[in-house]
Design a binder for these strands. Structure first.
Lengths: 168, 168
DNA sequence: ATGTATGCAAACCATTTGCAATGAC
DNA sequence: GTCATTGCAAATGGTTTGCATACAT
């Protein structure tokens, strides 16, 4: 859309991540557009989860304009490139996170907050685990419950006060 | 809506499940309608996963008419009663299943089929697992990969042929 | 009789799609 | 110059909502 003279200005223009994406695009004969790198760049600076809308906002706050469709497109590409994962937690809109080390997701069913925790034992367990007639690509462990903040609140008020739940 | 003279004809009218639902409704001062029991009855005869649409179809095939809204409503109630769980697997519409023993879900990313497997070791692991500042209610382990049927197909044709994927 | 539940149709809203204009190569 | 990519606007589709009618209690 707009000629972007500063693809090379990306924070991590020589990072393994950018190189991996380059290779992925090349392997498919796809173009290296400014939008794609702007999105990749922003994603790589996010730790934890984000929604499509949040991602688009962050990018535009930096003064770079992208359409919602392009965000969806690129995010899809990054998933195919195995650099990004989508999670659909109970009762919320899809959230994305970069693929890093495997970890467990703790989801508070009261406030909707999601927290990642490392779990070496579990990772080891899954690493060794094979399923019959099934070839594992990846896995997700979602643990639903109540975070300590919400537990405290509900004790204090002695009534369930649902706050900040992303989607009704 | 329609007076139903045969609530008492339910397959498991005295089953623990029906009693549990009775108690749940009573505890909330809610009514015992024919629709609710028809839906409960059908759900209890399903092993594995189903979508709202499938559930409604099954019920109507038995000659009992229910609206989509009522199916949604009742399914929501059953979840609040901790008798039913909703799963949102990557790229598919929501699926429901009764709450039974904990099990792992194997999801084929090619054909979308979901298979449940018992996993005693994992259950034991999770049973013992406590998370910091988090009170666990329940958990779901989703394993994504390729089922043997799809693996065989893709080898035969030597090209990825996505079939029967619930949602594009 | 009273107020809850149902069913219908409309509204919602995240995501997808079609297509003309733009720009990477 | 060619054709992939973008951005917009419209379409989609599962889910939710509002409301009049039916019915459980």
């Amino acid at each position: 859309m707009k000629t972007n003279p500063n693809i090379d200005d990306l924070a991590g223009r020589n990072s393994p991540v950018v190189r991996k994406f380059n290779e992925f695009l090349d392997s498919r004969g796809m173009r290296r557009t400014a939008e794609r790198y702007a999105i990749l760049d922003r994603i790589m600076s996010i730790n934890g989860h984000f929604t499509i809308e949040e991602l688009q906002q962050m990018i535009e706050e930096e003064g770079f304009r992208v359409s919602r469709s392009t965000v969806y497109n690129t995010v899809e590409l990054l998933m195919e490139a195995k650099m990004l994962r989508r999670h659909v937690f109970e009762g919320m809109q899809a959230q994305y996170e970069r693929i890093t080390l495997p970890h467990t997701h703790l989801i508070c069913t009261t406030c909707g907050k999601v927290k990642e925790v490392k779990d070496t034992n579990f990772a080891a367990f899954m690493n060794a685990r094979r399923f019959n007639a099934f070839n594992t690509d990846h896995y997700s462990l979602y643990v639903y419950g109540t975070c300590s903040t919400c537990a405290r609140k509900s004790k204090r008020t002695d009534q369930v006060t649902k706050v900040n739940k992303p989607k009704k």
